[in-house]
Amino acid sequence: MYQENSSSWTFACYTHDVPENGGVCVKVNEQQIALFHFTRIDAWYATQNQCPHRRQMALSRGMIGTQGEIPKVACPFHKKTFSLETGECLNGDECSIETYGVKVEGDKVFIGI
């Protein structure tokens, strides 16, 4: 499964590098990107790795889940939650995160910047 919203795809890692229902940090074009494999809903997501609350590079270590039908990630330090689809903060705060397209071809994962 992939989200296609970019015209520039960059190889990020192999599918086996990302834990099921978890995330990793990958470096793409000098940016730290949090890449998630949400196996429970058969989906891949990519966001900025930096939590906007305190500017810590931590989102790739956050817990993923859902809020209603919305797939989300919670910062491991501050528990702020963000939509993996839109980047919107689901706690009512005005901060948000960048999201990126992801596509999987065979065992290779690509991120669209």
Rank of each mutant, 00 (worst) to 15 (best):
49 N>Y: 01
14 Y>C: 13
42 D>R: 09
92 G>W: 11
39 T>R: 13
53 H>K: 06
29 N>V: 15
51 C>A: 07
102 V>H: 00
46 A>D: 00
28 V>W: 01
109 V>G: 05
7 S>Y: 11
30 E>Y: 12
111 I>E: 06
3 Q>H: 11
113 I>P: 05
4 E>N: 10
9 W>R: 08
29 N>W: 04
2 Y>H: 06
23 G>K: 08
106 G>P: 00
69 E>R: 15
40 R>M: 12
20 E>A: 13
12 A>P: 07
54 R>I: 10
51 C>N: 03
103 K>A: 04
54 R>C: 10
28 V>K: 06
75 C>L: 05
113 I>E: 08
70 I>F: 01
53 H>W: 12
4 E>T: 15
6 S>M: 06
101 G>C: 04
74 A>K: 11
34 A>G: 10
82 F>N: 03
39 T>W: 02
72 K>N: 09
69 E>M: 15
75 C>R: 01
29 N>D: 08
96 S>R: 14
93 D>P: 10
105 E>C: 11
15 T>C: 12
58 A>E: 02
88 E>M: 10
100 Y>S: 04
10 T>V: 15
77 F>H: 08
49 N>I: 11
34 A>F: 01
74 A>Q: 13
101 G>T: 06
74 A>E: 07
83 S>Q: 02
92 G>L: 12
103 K>G: 03
77 F>M: 03
78 H>K: 09
113 I>Y: 07
28 V>R: 04
107 D>A: 13
20 E>V: 11
21 N>L: 14
22 G>K: 04
65 G>P: 14
104 V>L: 14
36 F>R: 01
73 V>T: 07
61 R>H: 09
103 K>E: 00
67 Q>E: 08
26 V>H: 02
51 C>Q: 01
73 V>E: 00
56 Q>T: 13
31 Q>K: 14
89 C>K: 09
47 T>M: 04
63 M>C: 14
13 C>T: 13
79 K>F: 10
1 M>E: 03
101 G>V: 08
109 V>D: 04
37 H>S: 11
41 I>E: 02
27 K>A: 05
35 L>M: 05
26 V>M: 00
28 V>L: 12
82 F>K: 00
21 N>D: 14
90 L>N: 01
40 R>D: 06
94 E>M: 15
57 M>S: 11
57 M>A: 09
90 L>V: 09
53 H>I: 15
98 E>P: 01
17 D>Y: 07
28 V>N: 02
43 A>P: 09
110 F>T: 07
24 V>P: 03
56 Q>Y: 10
21 N>V: 12
17 D>C: 13
